[in-house]
Simulated assay, not measured.
Amino acid sequence: MMFDRGITLTTRRLLLRPFAERDVPDLVEAARDPQMLRWMLWAPQENVRRAREFCTKTAHDDPEHKITFAIEPLAEHRCGGSIGLQRADWTFGRAEIGYWLAPWARGRGLVTEAVRAVTAYGFGKGLHRIELLVSVGNDASCRVAERAGFQRECVLREAGVLPGGARTDLVMFALLKSAQPDAPGAAIA
């Protein structure tokens, strides 16, 4: 099994699409946000060269194990974040979902909408379980997981690394295909 190359998903307010070179400035700008610098390991090193490599190559490679979407709010026509499935294990039917949202796209429930759409896509591809890992203290991300229907399962001690190298505990959330909430309006193109 593998994820589809070049696929887009649409919801009522979002276009989830492959990253493109036009997203480089938005990615670099988002990486300078204090919340991104606090939680995203890659953000402090982000620059135009790295962002271009991600948007044109890295985000598109390895469809057997991952798929990455740019989150584009339909009303804004710019990249407002990223969401994807990674570490897919087709034998066991599980993958991990991850996301980030730029400050200009926050506070409207957009990432919850994106999580629901990408989760539905993953289950449609044959996954049985989707996991979501959040650093302890990242309360906004925990709320997204809960609103999207994920159940808190455990804390993985010192399983993550924050910018600057500090170890952090990770809260594991998971959603089973059998417990998936409806994702109204999600369409695949």
Rank of each mutant, 00 (worst) to 15 (best):
Thr68Glu: 15
Glu113Gln: 06
His77Ile: 09
Phe54Leu: 15
Asp62Gln: 07
Arg129Glu: 07
Pro103Arg: 15
Tyr121Trp: 13
Trp100Phe: 14
Tyr99Met: 05
His65Met: 10
Gly109Met: 11
Glu53Gln: 08
Asp89His: 10
Thr58Asp: 12
Trp100Pro: 02
Thr119Phe: 02
Pro73Arg: 05
Ala114Tyr: 01
Trp90His: 11
Thr112Pro: 13
Gln86Glu: 11
Ser82Lys: 06
Glu76Asn: 10
Glu72Trp: 00
Ala117Val: 05
Val115Phe: 07
His128Glu: 15
Tyr99Leu: 09
His60Leu: 09
Glu72Tyr: 01
Lys125Ile: 00
Thr119Ser: 14
Ala102Tyr: 14
Val115Thr: 12
Leu85Gln: 03
Glu76Val: 06
Thr119His: 02
Gly109Trp: 10
Ala59Pro: 12
Gly84Pro: 08
Ala70Tyr: 06
Arg87Phe: 01
Gly124Thr: 07
Ile83Trp: 09
Gly107Thr: 11
Leu85Lys: 00
Cys79Trp: 00
Ala114Asp: 10
Ile83Leu: 06
Ser82Met: 14
Leu74Ala: 13
Pro63Glu: 12
Asp89Val: 03
Gly107Glu: 09
Arg129His: 07
Thr112Met: 00
Gly107Ser: 04
Ala59Ser: 15
Ala105Trp: 00
Glu113Pro: 14
Leu74Met: 15
Leu101Ala: 12
Gly107Ala: 02
Thr56Arg: 00
Gly93Trp: 01
Leu85Glu: 03
Thr91His: 14
Asp89Ala: 04
Thr68Phe: 03
Leu127Cys: 01
Ala102Gly: 03
Phe69Val: 11
Leu127Val: 06
Leu74Phe: 11
Arg108Cys: 10
Leu101Gly: 12
Tyr121Phe: 09
Glu96Val: 15
Phe123Trp: 05
Ala102Asp: 14
Arg108Phe: 15
Ala59Gln: 11
Gly84Leu: 14
Gly109Cys: 09
Phe69His: 05
Ala120Ile: 02
Thr119Asp: 02
Ala105Gly: 13
Ala70Leu: 12
Ala95Asn: 04
Lys66Val: 04
Trp104Leu: 05
Thr119Trp: 01
Glu64Arg: 15
Arg108Tyr: 14
Ala117Gly: 07
Leu85Tyr: 04
Ala88Phe: 15
Gly84Val: 13
Ala59Val: 05
Thr112Trp: 10
Lys125Ala: 07
Ala70Lys: 11
Ala95Leu: 12
Cys55Arg: 14
Trp90Lys: 04
Ala117Asn: 07
Phe92Arg: 04
Arg106Phe: 13
Asp62Tyr: 10
Pro63His: 03
Ala75Trp: 09
Glu113Val: 15
Glu53Asp: 13
Gln86His: 14
Leu85Cys: 05
Gly81Cys: 12
Phe69Arg: 09
Ile97Ala: 06
Trp100Cys: 08
Gly122Ser: 04
Gln86Tyr: 15
Ser82His: 05
Phe123Tyr: 03
His77Met: 11
Trp90Leu: 10
Lys57Met: 01
His60Cys: 03
Glu53Ile: 06
Ala114Asn: 08
Pro63Val: 05
Ala120Lys: 07
Ala70His: 00
Glu113Asp: 10
Tyr99Asp: 06
His60Ala: 06
Gly122Phe: 01
Glu96Lys: 08
Phe69Gln: 07
Lys66Arg: 13
Gly124Gln: 07
Pro73His: 10
Gly81Ile: 05
Ala102Lys: 04
Ile71Asn: 11
Ile97Trp: 08
Arg116Thr: 02
Ala120Trp: 02
Ile67Met: 03
Glu76His: 15
Leu101Arg: 00
Ala114Thr: 06
Ser82Trp: 09
Arg78His: 10
